[in-house]
Design a protein around this nucleic acid. Structure first.
Lengths: 201, 201
DNA sequence: ACATTAATCGAACGTTCGTTTAGTGTCTGG
DNA sequence: CCAGACACTAAACGAACGTTCGATTAATGT
């Protein structure tokens, strides 16, 4: 009838299923340690189909990068604003693949798309912090860009080291929503540190 | 004579040469993406010699972990103390292999030895911060362990994301000594943030 | 009804992987 | 002087790698 034409299998979701499986496995084991056959098995398709759709394993990696970057850009207004420095405000949203774990992995591995994403977040944070300064909530600084960059690096660094954060502080930054994170001891200590610093006045 | 017995080649440094080559390549490309043959070529030995000395590729990885961990422990007093939160105070020391880049890589990849190392640094930071509180330099807190852990995570996170730090702030945390880093804009902004926080009082 | 196109599979390609086995030469201690 | 330990090489193994090449099947346009 007049509906779409998902020609085979369940839906035209096959490509999405491959992408989700790839993001999951890449996030869990790293890109280099994950084989095309393992991704194909997880997505329940034939390995050659991955090449057919994405050209190569690296093409698949780029597609994963873009998919995660698009997701982050969609939810960016929840992230990196002044006083809410926690990238874990992006929750998994039941989207299936662990997008934040993938992001954490690629933050340290260094892909071009991730670098562009970080740059955007820094520029956004510059704006948020400037708004905070204008409204009197945030201290002014001689180096607003550098301050925003460092705050972003600290936030994203905690995400990249989420395994250690979980072990040390018992908070899983890749699984919890923002509210639960901020209400934790982790959130309170972070607010205390960023609020008044460590040194006695 | 009474001197050592470096039986073949230059010294018994062959094992060390393999270790140095492995650390360099692991740091540059990641463990999974680096083959035994590439390491052997960089160390100018036969691939099977690596297995002979280290048992397996994973044995070599563990040896690299231990080597870097030992280096960090040796120079630990320069790191993570109150007010000097910068792990880049460990400099390469001309030791050859890029130990800090290797550490940054394994911080995110998660090896058991690295986790133990992080735990030690956190415990040290607890002590340093307690000393700071006792001497009146550092604010007291209700959660001293969590504060130390978070400071350590931020420090090590910036190291793990050193690529972004370099791009955004122009500071190479894996190459510079501590002094040059702290005197940079990066160091001044970090001191400002940790010193007095971001929020207006 | 038929040609076309896209989706998917099955099997194989050549390469590279980590590892094994066997062997060579050099030094050293009894 | 010679037996064995040691540093190291040479060649090959089987498995896994990413990728290619048809063949098969189902939807689509005419």
């Amino acid at each position: 009838m007049s509906d779409e034409s998902p020609p085979r299998g369940d839906k035209s979701s096959t490509k999405s299923r491959i992408l989700a499986a790839a993001i999951t496995l890449f996030a869990d084991q790293g890109v280099a340690a994950t084989g095309v056959r393992a991704i194909a098995a997880a997505a329940d398709v034939h390995p050659s189909l991955i090449i057919h759709y994405f050209g190569s394993k690296d093409g698949l990696r780029v597609a994963c990068d873009k998919h995660v970057a698009a997701f982050v850009r969609e939810h960016k207004q929840q992230v990196m604003r002044a006083g809410r420095f926690d990238p874990a405000e992006l929750r998994d949203l039941g989207d299936g693949p662990p997008l934040l774990r993938y992001l954490a992995r690629t933050l340290a591995d260094g892909s071009p798309h991730t670098a562009a994403l970080v740059d955007e977040m820094v520029n956004d944070a510059v704006g948020y912090l400037a708004d905070g300064v204008a409204s009197g909530l945030v201290r002014p600084t001689d180096h607003p860009y550098e301050r925003a960059a460092l705050l972003a690096i600290w936030s994203l660094g905690t995400l990249a080291l989420h395994e250690h954060v979980q072990r040390l502080l018992g908070v899983d930054l890749t699984a919890l929503g923002g509210a639960a994170t901020v209400e934790s001891t982790y959130g309170r200590v972070a607010s205390e540190l960023l609020g008044s610093g460590i040194f006695r006045t």
